Amino acid sequence: MDALTFYFDRNFGKRLPNALYKLRPPVEIRWHQGERFAQDMPDDEWMEKVGGKNWIVLTQDLKFHLIEHEVQALKQHNIRCFYFPDAQIGMWKTLAIFMRTHERIIALAQNHKAPFIFKVQNTGSIKPVFVADG
């Protein structure tokens, strides 16, 4: 199997993914700003690019399953997505949650057919998110 790539969308900023990248994890790390995507690029546009590369989306934007054109992009581009708790919990707690869950995220990404969304909880549990027909 090809190496997996985690793509951190713009809501994560660049500090956390850049720090992870420097640690040389067992997956490739990419992020919105590092890919030189415009800050105001619509979600469905970067989803097309990321989905075409089969990258795994990590986001703190918890609405992809609620907005019709984003649901359509998620499905059309076979997005594999993991929602993380919002940025209000702080970067340190977000890093701790990522470290506690990254192996399960990898396993879920490898063993579930795209498209899908899972929500990573503050507790470290990971639950599927229902994606309605868009």
Results as ranks from 00 to 15, higher is better:
11 N>M: 11
41 M>K: 14
44 D>T: 13
114 A>T: 07
79 I>E: 02
95 L>I: 13
26 P>V: 06
101 T>A: 11
97 I>L: 04
94 T>L: 15
56 I>Q: 00
58 L>Q: 02
124 G>D: 10
32 H>T: 12
101 T>P: 11
38 A>T: 03
37 F>P: 00
110 Q>A: 08
4 L>R: 08
62 L>Q: 06
62 L>P: 01
72 Q>P: 02
12 F>T: 00
69 H>Q: 06
85 P>Y: 02
39 Q>T: 11
130 F>M: 09
117 I>R: 06
118 F>V: 02
123 T>V: 04
78 N>W: 14
91 M>C: 02
60 Q>R: 13
133 D>H: 07
68 E>Y: 04
26 P>H: 15
82 F>V: 07
28 E>A: 14
46 W>C: 11
49 K>R: 11
126 I>R: 07
63 K>T: 07
103 E>C: 06
16 L>H: 04
94 T>D: 00
102 H>V: 14
40 D>A: 04
13 G>Y: 01
20 L>F: 13
75 K>W: 04
39 Q>W: 05
15 R>S: 10
35 E>R: 12
87 A>Q: 13
4 L>G: 09
109 A>L: 10
31 W>R: 01
61 D>A: 00
100 R>W: 10
29 I>S: 12
8 F>M: 05
14 K>S: 14
73 A>Y: 13
97 I>V: 13
5 T>I: 13
96 A>H: 12
127 K>M: 11
75 K>G: 12
126 I>D: 11
106 I>M: 12
126 I>W: 06
130 F>G: 11
56 I>G: 00
15 R>G: 04
4 L>Y: 09
113 K>W: 04
116 F>V: 08
88 Q>H: 10
36 R>S: 05
52 G>I: 12
107 A>L: 07
56 I>W: 07
84 F>C: 02
39 Q>P: 03
62 L>G: 06
23 L>P: 01
58 L>A: 00
